[in-house]
Design a protein around this nucleic acid. Sequence first.
DNA 1: AACTTTGTACAGAAAAAACTGTACGTAGCG
DNA 2: CGCTACGTACAGTTTTTTCTGTACAAAGTT
Lengths: 178, 178
Amino acid sequence: MNGEQQLEKARERVIDAISKNMNLYGVTESIGRLYGALYFQESPLTLDEMKEELGMSKTSMSTSVRNLVDLKMVGKVWKKGVRKDLYQAEPDWYQTFADFFTIKWRTGVTINMTAMEKSLYELQMLLDDENVNHMVKAEAKLDIEKLTSAIDYYKWLNRLVDSFETGEIFQYIPKSTK
Amino acid sequence: MNGEQQLEKARERVIDAISKNMNLYGVTESIGRLYGALYFQESPLTLDEMKEELGMSKTSMSTSVRNLVDLKMVGKVWKKGVRKDLYQAEPDWYQTFADFFTIKWRTGVTINMTAMEKSLYELQMLLDDENVNHMVKAEAKLDIEKLTSAIDYYKWLNRLVDSFETGEIFQYIPKSTK
DNA sequence: AACTTTGTACAGAAAAAACTGTACGTAGCG
DNA sequence: CGCTACGTACAGTTTTTTCTGTACAAAGTT
């Protein structure tokens, strides 16, 4: 095995690990591989180059890269005189991590808070309604308690996300230094 | 709509949100629904009761609940005189959250650290090999830098996970109080 | 203005995953 | 020890997701 092949193999192993890892959080392995490929590039790639690199269709590259951009894991780059769109991987993994979970968690918190507050309100109404059976009310009461503490948790999660977003988290858990 | 229906509707909305939320992190919607159903139960359920509750096969309940147990979101409960396995949802979401991401992140860190350290070693070897082209060595050098800083990041992530596992995180981001 | 090039929408094909039913091993009970 | 009840492995089916190729709109070039 010559040097170039060894280099390729070393990269391939890491790309594999990266894509498996991303897969744990609901990102397709293909998208993970694309990110990995971009990560090892010295300069930004065009869609056609990605297509070449991964042996997939251009359409797939287009949708995959858009996915990565939405996750802020990859950014579009402008280069003078180049007509094609260029993309490169965000090199700072601390940033990538923070963005990724900020995006995901905020989405989740929003979905759940909205639903829970609405349901909480309805359950309160139920308690105030004289026509409702007291067995049902007892259940509603339990649910209200559960939802209330769940909402507390989501408030906490929102604060955690804030600390990711602002970088405050690094005051508590300092970045590793070489 | 009577009280019972209203109660059901309020729960259903929340279960829906929960399952969508879990889905963001690579958990099936069905598994999410199961967790949601368990969350609102007052007492633990058997596989047959879950099957009834969700209108799915017992086999699915078995695999789904095992999934939730692996994630520590649901626990098996023992009850005197009852032969069937009983399961109930972990009620403390702070705990659930910490466990969930501890499990996921540790897995990810391990996968990546192993691969990266191995590749890092190989790349170092490459640099020390006289027969290797200097262009290839230049690339290897860049890769080594990338991997080194990626590994630093994973060390940090490990410390973050530690803080989740020990509960230290709550010193920095205190739990919300009612 | 005509001609290229580039990126993406969309429909259909291919691949992956979730789900079910049967069959079976194991454990409790009489 | 035989019988029943329970949970799960496994194979096959259904559903969902991913991927591709074609077609087209938008922007750039001559």
